[in-house]
């Protein structure tokens, strides 16, 4: 409870942007523990991620993927261990963008796509400042980069699922985020919208990217690094090294079928729900 309050106080206080340590990796996690009340959601996580890397976080439901992203964003407290983003605790940064699952957003809210992307500038502006022409230009540029320039006056609820996800990415761009955390950005999207989102992520070359994903196939083909998670770390590294039968069986239990094809690639059927898993 004390750490929860301390974290709330830390995130609550208005901080000036933390100074990045150029020698530190984009993300350094050491012995990270996160708990919700009694339940330990993440246990003893340790890994480094270099700047500009793109990491897919995979694992069954309830594995702690969202929890990890939120901990890195500095919006859930750590029960133990440390997180350093460019050498500094996450709470000191305004350069971290957290893109929630689409289901967590109130899409009936009366804001246009332009307004929603402008929200990314607000942390940069500080209290009592109004957006200036430069901010508006950045927002338009971000909307253009994700192909939503003709949608800026649409109310957010009138956008399609793929457009909503691209609008989130535009918000991260407008925020000038250097670490972008995406929670299940492909969930509920059709294949062509998924591909648009993946293509956009590939274009964000300046930022370090963490994506929570369900689809192991997408994770293996579109990302440099892969983290296999089920409360604790079952593998971290290049996708081919991580996607080993033993680790996958440990992560997914019986819910997983693996087939070896001619060129030795693992084809994985992922129903993500095991009997002993709490499916929510």
């Amino acid at each position: 409870m004390t750490s929860l309050r301390a974290a709330a106080a830390r995130t609550g206080r208005r901080t000036t942007e933390a100074v990045h340590d150029p020698d530190a990796p984009a993300l350094r996690i050491r012995n990270l523990h996160v708990s919700y009340g009694e339940r330990l959601a993440l246990e003893d996580l340790t890994f480094d991620l270099p700047a500009g890397a793109r990491l897919a976080v995979v694992g069954p439901n309830g594995a702690g993927k969202s929890t990890l992203l939120k901990a890195v964003a500095g919006i859930v407290p750590r029960a133990g261990g440390s997180i350093a983003v460019h050498g500094v605790v996450p709470e000191g940064h305004t350069c971290i963008a957290y893109l929630p699952q689409r289901s967590e957003v109130d899409w009936r809210f009366p804001v246009t796509a332009f307004d929603a992307v402008m929200m990314g500038r607000i942390g940069r502006l500080g209290p009592l400042r109004r957006p200036k022409e430069r901010d508006r230009a950045l927002v338009r540029e971000a909307l253009g980069l994700v192909g939503l320039e003709d949608r800026e006056e649409r109310r957010i609820g009138e956008l399609s699922g793929g457009e909503q996800q691209r609008m989130f990415i535009a918000r991260a761009i407008a925020q000038e985020a250097e670490l972008v955390l995406l929670d299940e950005p492909l969930a509920g999207l059709d294949v062509s919208s998924q591909n648009e989102v993946l293509a956009l992520l590939a274009q964000l070359r300046k930022a370090t990217i963490l994506v929570a994903l369900h689809d192991l196939g997408v994770a293996a083909t579109h990302f440099d690094f892969l983290l296999l998670l089920r409360g604790r770390m079952l593998g971290f590294g290049h996708p081919a090294d991580v996607l080993q039968p033993e680790a996958l069986r440990e992560a997914y239990g019986g819910a997983l079928r693996m087939v070896r094809t001619e060129d030795g690639i693992l084809v994985v059927h992922d129903t993500t729900c095991t009997a002993e898993d709490r499916c929510s």
Binding site: G74, I96, V105, M119, L128
Partner: peptide, 26 residues
């Protein structure tokens, strides 16, 4: 009027407010 954008973000998405380091509780 003074706190328009802070109220907007806090009302729309408390999580976003937290990552933008807005004093959401206040």
């Amino acid at each position: 009027i003074f706190f328009y954008k802070e109220f907007l973000v806090v009302t729309f998405d408390p999580t976003l407010a937290a990552t933008l380091r807005i004093r959401a509780a206040f």
